[in-house]
Design a binder for these strands. Structure first.
Lengths: 272, 272
DNA sequence: CTTGACTCTCCCCTAGGGGGAGGCCCGACT
DNA sequence: AGTCGGGCCTCCCCCTAGGGGAGAGTCAAG
């Protein structure tokens, strides 16, 4: 009944001594005999077989508790199920890694991903727009905006009106993970528009705005907001109305890294 | 100088309060002001910009200390270098994941990857072989075996001798991570062979062997060895010579999952 | 003044071990 | 029979990037 101490067993199985002690402690691979007086662990040669199975399963990054399940059962179907489930997890992780890597590539491409924004003050003139207001939240905002622009285009087409500038959205409320709110989707037009049940014409008032130009995916626009609000606060201004975003090019035809969005905050200079 | 407490700042930046406290502690993102009496952290709005950069870099799984380096420098080249280095790491990890996944797929394919071996006792008859002995280690063993079979084939071709069975290797020493040793590469032949400086003919003696058949990549053959040595010890036999492996099909033409290797240990039954 | 929501520090937890301290133990050699 | 070098034990802290929670203090609105 050749018993070997942990060091030799470690060499045989190419599992580290630390790992073997851990597997003992959690019951995954108990030594055949433990000397009660010295605490020395002694393994039978035949246990190297199980140890090898552990090593193989660990080499595919299977968690120890699942290895335990696999080694504890005699049902080959359960084993198969566990392996397949683990494969699914690995594949998912792989896909996530690929997405992360692709995103990092895009960050490297446009170096200014980390570069600061330039905040300027601009006098916006009054502007006639065709508009529609929707109540939305972060999950449905993409669909809602698409539908909103659809309604606008439909109404404008019916009245023979064409856009007089890039579309924009006024964010009357903060839309984040847990709060919903109103946004006003607008397309500049040259003259009055009568509209329908959803769409109406109105005038965006002239305003002094603090503005920054965001280049890149919409996902990252938060930095522009933070920069502008920080700038406003640092320069002793006050926000004088809801912010708006002006979409300078078309997400349908331009890749996300090249999207240009102007963020504007109306301000006044009351504070000191 | 609008100061916001940690909860509001957390919502603004979509970084958890725990994360913000951690970034404070490690100096990555210090609050603009900490109330000395209450310990409350207060952030300036402008800090959300830096926070957003942290969030973006964390979203590509960059370690915090490297983010710190990137945010601490003004040198865009250094930033670029860090990003590219991180991309390399991610790509490497991705490739490793892919290899792991592929290996797991192969494990699933041949379900018996975890199945036990059947150990049998066989009487091997004496066998003439052409042989060559090389001293090798785990790193170079692949090349050495290839070169050894090359020498054998060359010598046999010169003498007009053809193989009389599948090739085999006698492992006179244990070859593992840190130890090197001798192996004897053999090809069975029908008659005597005169050989050359490297190659010689000899007789493999008849022997009683404990044997198991390994199906799958050579990488996993350790389990077969462990099973056999454990079996020998459990059944009261003793090892009576160095083990040998018989290669029943050709790794050049057969995919690794279908490789068949017979592992044999000569034994005697002296012990009880 | 009270109350409810925020925030603080401190501690333990994650998965799978690595590194090391301090102290016993084993086997081989003299 | 001693002794010496290496092997083995337990215990503790360390790693990532925070998460969960306890117990206590704090802020702001009514």
């Amino acid at each position: 009944m050749n018993l070997v101490p942990i060091g030799r067993f470690s060499k045989m199985t190419r599992l580290s001594v630390k790992a073997l002690r851990l597997y003992d402690e959690m019951g995954l691979l108990r030594p055949a005999h433990v000397d009660p007086s010295s605490g020395y662990r002694y393994y039978e040669l035949g246990q190297a077989n199980r140890a090898e199975a552990v090593r193989i399963l660990r080499s595919v990054e299977m968690p120890l508790d699942e290895i335990q399940v696999i080694l504890a059962t005699d049902d080959p179907e359960l084993v198969h199920k566990q392996l397949v489930a683990h494969r699914e997890r690995l594949a998912e992780r792989l896909a996530a890694q690929e997405r992360t890597l692709a995103y990092l590539e895009s960050l490297i491409q446009r170096e200014e991903g980390i570069m600061p924004y330039e905040v300027e003050i601009i006098e916006e003139t009054a502007q006639l727009v065709a508009a529609t207001k929707v109540h939305t939240n972060l999950r449905t905002i993409g669909n809602d905006i698409g539908a909103g622009f659809g309604s606008l285009m439909q109404a404008m087409g019916r009245e023979g009106v064409t856009p007089a500038g890039p579309p924009l959205i006024v964010y009357h409320d903060v839309i984040d993970e847990e709060t919903d709110g109103d946004i006003e989707i607008c397309v500049p037009v040259a003259g009055a528009i009568s509209g329908d049940s959803n769409v109406y014409g109105r005038e965006l008032e002239a305003a002094t705005v603090a503005t920054a130009l965001h280049r890149g995916p919409y996902q990252e626009i938060a930095r522009a907001y933070h920069t502008i609000t920080g700038w406003i606060s640092d320069h002793g201004h006050e926000m004088a109305g809801p912010p708006r975003e002006i979409y300078l090019n078309d997400p349908q035809t331009v890749p996300p890294e090249e999207l240009l969005t102007r963020v504007e905050f109306p301000i006044c200079s009351e504070a000191g």
